[in-house]
């Protein structure tokens, strides 16, 4: 008899438990906080501004990204600046700020297949190692090809300047078609 009472108590307790934990939070859901939807690389030579933009508003799956390529002038030096945004937040969250704060754990890498195009990082992190939010881009003769921007999390710093050598894990890797005219 005692056993049955105990069993009954147990079941009752569990039902209370079930009822209490029945918090179907249909509206209290999570969204991707660290999502980067938009990369904007702005290049200016003082007179003209070229904006390269890579945007995927609905995340990894779903719609394909929208990529805005750019045309650069030959034999020109541009001042470059990169901005990362999460546009699923209102207002859009500027993720560049987070990267800057954790500068010692991050580094941007720029590379181009167009001969004569070189990119130098002009800013540094707290340890005086290159960071790459600010850059200068110098073009040579005309040509077409691609420009790739990589953001590494926890790379080896300092490194030889290439993304492959730096290790770490890739937070961002976008490629634009550019044309130097």
């Amino acid at each position: 008899m005692k056993t049955i009472k105990l069993l009954a108590l147990f079941i009752t307790t569990s039902l209370v438990f079930t009822a209490c934990s029945d918090d179907h939070d249909d509206h209290d859901h999570d969204h991707e906080e660290e999502l980067i939807t938009t990369v904007i690389y702005t290049l200016t030579d003082g007179n003209n501004t070229v904006t390269l933009q890579w945007e995927d508003l609905d995340g990894d799956t779903g719609n394909a990204p929208v990529i805005t390529d750019g045309i650069l002038s030959a034999n020109t030096t541009y001042t470059g600046s990169i901005q990362l945004l999460n546009k699923t937040e209102t207002p859009a969250e500027d993720i560049t700020v987070e990267v800057k704060t954790e500068g010692d754990e991050h580094e941007f890498f720029y590379s181009s297949s167009v001969s004569g195009v070189t990119i130098n990082k002009t800013d540094v992190d707290g340890n005086d190692n290159p960071l790459g939010i600010k850059t200068t881009l110098t073009t040579g003769n005309t040509g077409t090809g691609s420009l790739t921007i990589v953001l590494k999390h926890e790379p080896t710093k300092p490194n030889n300047g290439t993304a492959d050598n730096a290790g770490g894990s890739t937070d961002l890797e976008v490629t634009f078609n550019i044309s130097v005219q």
Partner: peptide, 19 residues
């Protein structure tokens, strides 16, 4: 048997397994 899965809110990610 009754089973309930709760993808606890507050992770800042889309839950892999839903409620």
């Amino acid at each position: 048997r009754y089973q309930q899965n709760d993808a606890v809110a507050g992770t800042g990610t889309n839950p892999l397994i839903p409620d």
